[in-house]
Design a protein around this nucleic acid. Structure first.
Lengths: 137, 137
DNA sequence: GCCTTATATTCAGATAACTGCATATAGTGT
DNA sequence: ACACTATATGCAGTTATCTGAATATAAGGC
């Protein structure tokens, strides 16, 4: 069995997950590494319940994965196929933007001090995206 | 200017186009070549107006392109990026299914007789999909 | 040219689904 | 207790989906 989806309803469901600006932006952040919920709150400028709801959609679809670290919940991408789709539409994560410094209130403007939510790392260790050459991009 | 989309609303709009089983199935057919409207009527089992509306959505987004041939309208994919997304999620067009014989009423069971709508061809001459190697697929 | 038939588009309208937001409640860790 | 997060519910506004009728275009017969 390969990793492709042949059922149109199921495939459309995958696209439907990505057909949402907030979810897409969060996934785009997660392509660069893990992130906590408060991180998305700052980035999206949305209330916590809203962020959690959208993350819940992605978690329910097993696109992302959550793990507790103290008071924070750390999210990361676990669906390599979705990561590939994002690469196709948004480009490689490091191709057009630096990984942003975490703008969480607890992080403040200091860059990743100890105790802050420095979950943004440039290492998708859980997402083995297949290596490819891109001649057209 | 590269071919990637950096705006989340715009990117979500692209995914939204594909987040629909009927549109997805039609695009999957179009990956294999051109097709007339009546072809989709048969494949989807939907009325003409419905098929035309969904094709209109894709046409309006400039994902597909329509050209008249006598009484028929011939559709084809013109958005290479969308074709790439479909490749990622559904696999290569020829990797899991043969190009179906056109099941239109006028085509009948005869295989592509003259005068029939033999628009299904395995040649995406209008879609210059960039060549890639897929080591992970 | 005129009429008919086949193909396809467009419009109007009803139904269903989604979105964004607020709020409330509960669980977990410090 | 307090901070962070998850989950549930309700609501108003928006959008998508699908059906059916009307319209446009092309081909063939007279």
């Amino acid at each position: 069995m390969n990793s492709t989806v042949t059922d149109y309803g199921k495939a459309a469901g995958v696209f439907k997950l990505l057909a949402h600006p907030a979810r897409l932006q969060m996934l785009d952040e997660l392509r660069r590494g893990e992130a906590c919920v408060c991180h998305f709150q700052q980035i999206l400028g949305r209330p916590q319940a809203y962020v959690s709801q959208q993350l819940g959609v992605l978690r329910d679809a097993q696109v992302v994965d959550a793990e507790r670290d103290g008071v924070n919940m750390i999210y990361r991408i676990v669906d390599a196929q979705v990561a590939r789709l994002l690469d196709d539409l948004l480009g490689e994560p490091d191709s057009y933007r630096e990984a942003p410094a975490c703008p969480c209130p607890k992080c403040g403007d200091e860059s990743q001090v100890d105790g802050a939510c420095n979950y943004i790392v440039m290492d998708l260790k859980e997402v083995p995206v297949p290596t490819r050459t891109r001649e057209g991009g």
